[in-house]
Design a protein around this nucleic acid. Structure first.
Lengths: 223, 223, 223, 223
DNA sequence: AATGAATGAGAGTTCATTCAT
DNA sequence: AATGAATGAACTCTCATTCAT
């Protein structure tokens, strides 16, 4: 197997037993990579619109103006495509979260940052989030996507730590359950992807502000 | 179509939004109806577990110990089955919501009731909510399910009215968007179906209490 | 899963985790089984003619006058069909070999019997032998067919034992290699399936006689 | 088609049965020819391992470290590659057979020579023989390979002549069928390619000796 | 001499649904 | 009320081959 663009951008655990040289000198792979990214984008849009299962590889190929078989020049499988979409989202999110943690601040500030990060991915990673909301239940059955569950577990730890720290430092109420609270925050944010319209009254930042307000102080008017 | 129970338990399309349970009065059809309900229950469990699309009619038939073709004696399509699951949920929810409204009380009390109603459906209607969370994006493309969008619009009006009334009477903050707030509340509650375990630390009521607390007063500790 | 004819006639190692009742009272399965056997026969003929790989499930379905998808009512997969063909051959061969052994006699008699048994399968199991000759190299890569290699190993032991016994009792020459000799006999017999015509000058029995003659005494005229 | 080495190394179809090696006399095409031969060798190895049908042109290209499309600079089809492998085998075999005949001797000596020739091709032409054993049934359907059947018919005549001559001169038994006997000898020898290991206890020559012994005198111990 | 993108035909398989029995 | 056989359309994916660069 040569170094085509089919490698899916992620390391494979299984070593290649068959021979074959690996090459490619200069920059023609940039073009290949652009084509590939374009196809991923088209697929992402369809996955978001109709769902992963309901989108056929023919749909994607049609959108690109090629035949379905031709997609397999670029990707191993339909799964590879969605994998690429999800990976790119998770990688970016993890990096942003780490950066927020590194910036420091009191738990309320960190939590605000984390919330804002979530909302800020809504537009650039709409498809990934949509797929996660609608098709995760289906995708999780494939070993290949186990890494997503792990990534989510990491994120949970990160949030829960901040909530607990907030409780210890007297910033947050003591009578809420950290894990439960995290889950509700997480779900509430991501699920907005279903109805959120960036061109609407509130953009992603506005949505974040609104949510942070309610999250920290509730909807009640306090005297 | 024969004179069996195949009419999907629902007389007319325009009867959909009126809510309320339907009963079959007379004789042997009760047995048929019981068998039918049993099959719906089996299907519901599978839909909840694997999703609507990923569940095959064969899966359902297998679970019932019959052949897939035999299901069509009871239902005229796979869609009919999920329709029945969803209708039963929406009918019950609408009725409960109306009852809460009828009971009256200040907006905070009514809203609390509405929240509690939502959480209380989590167990008996787990499958319907799961389907709505995971497969709505797919199902909405069929005209047949347009009534669900209408029912949801009705519910939204009901909630938004209460939130606005709360703002007018000085109970709720003025700087929150009623519609946005409703959506977030709605999403936060329903999405819990994905991880909620009735046998866990908190049951549905506990979850409701926890959420109402955070919703009204936020997670911050106010002096 | 119910007890349809899809079980492939062979036990499955993997237990069925999904529920479902198992029934079937009377004899309607005989009919189902007949249909199934008919399809297997059609497939066998095609496999023998064109090879396993080159035969498509559509070819088989066409021959049966149904659509390709309909085959899957009867079989899990194309592999299942060929499996059935091979299993039936191996089962019968193993039984016949055991019977020959049980009959006893000196090694020359037993070996003659074994040879005759091989030739006698040429007509009834032509397809299986043809597949084994032409497609074994392909089929052996699938775990599913590991049992064939095992069956072959058993047969080898059986033959080699007789050859050795013949050498010990002074019936056979001492300067031949038992294993090598077995392999050559085996291959020589089975490979005749490629050109053997039952309607030709010699039938399977005639072929066996001819071969036994040459095998034991060679082609040379001994004074 | 350009003026590359794509003409498959063979000038005309009617030159096929004449046998003999073909050389390219002149200049830089020697390099091209070497590359070509290298590719044929890689393909041969794969065909032997996995069979002709199961080997994809991509497999071959991978092995060579190039892309599958690039193979078509050297060959005009997958068939051309296997054709080259088979032709080279048949040409050499025919030449060797002719030489044996030319050397003369009594039928027993000639037959021994022919047997030894067959065994001696086992190593250098392993792939061709393997393909012939496993994929001939598939390849024979293409007109292009009709010449193989013809070559085989020629060989048969040659062998049968010697066997008959042996019977006439009282060297061989009269009660064996010459044609049948030839076929069994042929099959027995070629089919060993499936399990023969040159590094094993017996090399090709040893195998030949062993077989000649059994062929002429049988496995029985004659007083 | 090779790449990289694509074709086009066809592969095995799935599945909701129908219908005679 | 159920069976068992079949449909027909669609699915993901494969692969020999082509061709502009």
């Amino acid at each position: 197997m040569t170094t085509t663009s089919k490698d899916n951008g992620r390391q494979r655990a299984d070593a290649r037993t068959t021979g074959g040289a690996r090459r490619r000198a200069k920059g023609s792979s940039t073009l290949a990579s652009e084509r590939r990214e374009h196809l991923v984008k088209l697929a992402a849009e369809l996955f978001a619109q109709k769902g992963y299962q309901a989108t056929t590889v023919r749909n994607i190929a049609d959108e690109a103006g090629i035949l379905s078989g031709s997609l397999y020049h670029h990707f191993d499988s339909k799964e590879s495509i969605v994998d690429e979409i999800l990976t790119s989202f998770f990688d970016e999110l993890a990096a942003a979260n780490q950066a927020a943690l590194a910036r420091g601040g009191d738990p309320r500030e960190v939590l605000s940052d984390l919330v804002r990060i979530c909302f800020s991915t809504l537009v650039p990673h709409r498809a990934a989030i949509m797929v996660l909301q609608n098709d995760w239940n289906y995708l999780k059955q494939f070993e290949r996507f186990d890494y997503l569950a792990k990534a989510e577990a990491d994120t949970e730890r990160l949030w829960v730590d901040q909530i607990k720290r907030g409780q210890e430092t007297g910033l947050f109420r003591d009578d809420i359950d950290p894990k439960l609270t995290y889950r509700m925050i997480r779900d509430t944010i991501w699920v907005t992807v279903r109805w959120f319209q960036p061109e609407g009254r509130l953009d992603a930042d506005g949505l974040a502000d609104h949510y942070i307000k309610v999250l920290f102080d509730g909807i009640s008017l306090h005297r």
